[in-house]
Simulated assay, not measured.
Amino acid sequence: MLICDGRVVIITGAGRGIGRQHALEFARQGARVVVNDLGTGRSGDGRSGEPAQLVAEEIRQLGGQAIANCDDVATWDGAARLVKSAVSAFGGLDVLVNNAGFLRDRMLVSMTEQEWDDVVRVHLKGHFLPLRHAAGYWRERAKSGVPPQARVINTSSGAGLLGSVGQGNYAAAKAGIAALTQVAAAELGRYGVTVNAIAPAARTRMTEEVFASTMAAPESGFDPMDPANVAPLVVWLGSAASGHVTGRVFEVEGGVLSLADGWRHGPRAERDTRWEPADVGAAVDELVRQAPPPEPVYGAG
C-alpha cells in the first residue's frame, strides 16, 4: 500500500540533495508533489528554475504527478503563491515539508551582518512564511467543517540542537526552527495539523566539506551519508498514519532514527525571599553539580 496515495505535498528546497530525495520518495508513495526551489548556489547566490523543473520532470517520467515552483519562500508573496500553486494544480494541500536553506559559515568574530541576516532569513523566515500560509488554508478548511489530516515537517539540524562552531547564524536559525515546531504543534492541533521536525545528517552541497572523509561509497553497499536515507521518516511523518505524533524533533542518520530530547526543567534551588548576590554562586554550583553535563557543541575542543 502506498502510504501517501493521493496526498498533496509541498517540499521547499527540493531541487537537490535531501529535498530532492523527499520529493522522489513522496512520489513513489503516491503523493502529488510541488517541487519548490530557487535554484541558487551553495551560498545562496544566483537563481535558476532548472533544478525544480528537472526533479518535477523526473517524477513525471516515473509515472507520478509533480509541478515545479520557483518562488522565494522567504517572502510573504512567494510563500503565498507556493501554497496557492498546490491548491490550484492538485485541488488541495496535505503536507508541507520545509527544507530550503544554505550556509554562510563564519566564526562569530568574523561574521558580517549580511551573513547573519541572509542565513536567518532563508532558514527561519523561510520556514515561518510557508507554514503561515499553509496554516491559514488548513484553518479555513477546518472552519468549513472539513478538518484536514495535515502535516508539517520542518528541518532543524544537530547544529540547532547542540550548537556548531563556525555556524552561529545557522545554529541560531535551526534552534529557532525547533522552537517554532513546538509552538506550531500546540497552536495548530485544533485544526487537524501535526507539526514535527527532523535534524538530519547526510551528504549534500551544504555538508560536503563536513563529510568529505565519507564521500566514497562504503564497501558494504550501504552509504550512511546518502541523503535518500532521510526521506522514509519524512514521508511517514507526512502520511495520515502519523496523526498521533506532533511537536517532536527526530534525528536521522543512515539507518538510525532517534528522538531528540530538548530543554527541560532541571535541578532547582528555592527560597522564600529574594536571593542575595553573594549566595547565588554556591547555589549555581550545586545546580551544576546535580545536572547532567551538556552535550558537546559540534566542532568544540
Rank of each mutant, 00 (worst) to 15 (best):
T246W: 03
G189W: 01
I153T: 14
H133A: 12
E140Q: 15
R132Y: 15
L131H: 09
A240I: 11
S157M: 08
P147I: 10
N229W: 07
R203N: 08
A175F: 04
I153Q: 13
W138P: 13
A171M: 04
S220I: 08
R190E: 15
P224S: 09
N229M: 01
G247H: 07
R151P: 03
V183P: 02
T214N: 10
W236E: 08
E253W: 12
Q182T: 02
P232N: 13
R139M: 08
A173D: 04
A186R: 10
V256G: 06
N154F: 00
S144G: 14
V210E: 13
G221T: 07
A159E: 01
Q182W: 13
Y170N: 01
G145L: 09
Q167N: 07
G255L: 09
Q182G: 11
G160S: 07
A175C: 06
L129H: 05
L188W: 11
G168Y: 04
P130L: 02
V256N: 15
A228I: 02
P130F: 02
T246Y: 04
G176H: 04
V152M: 09
V183L: 12
Q167W: 03
E140A: 15
E208I: 10
P147C: 10
P148D: 10
K174I: 02
A212L: 10
T194E: 10
E187F: 03
D226G: 02
I153R: 06
A197V: 05
T155E: 05
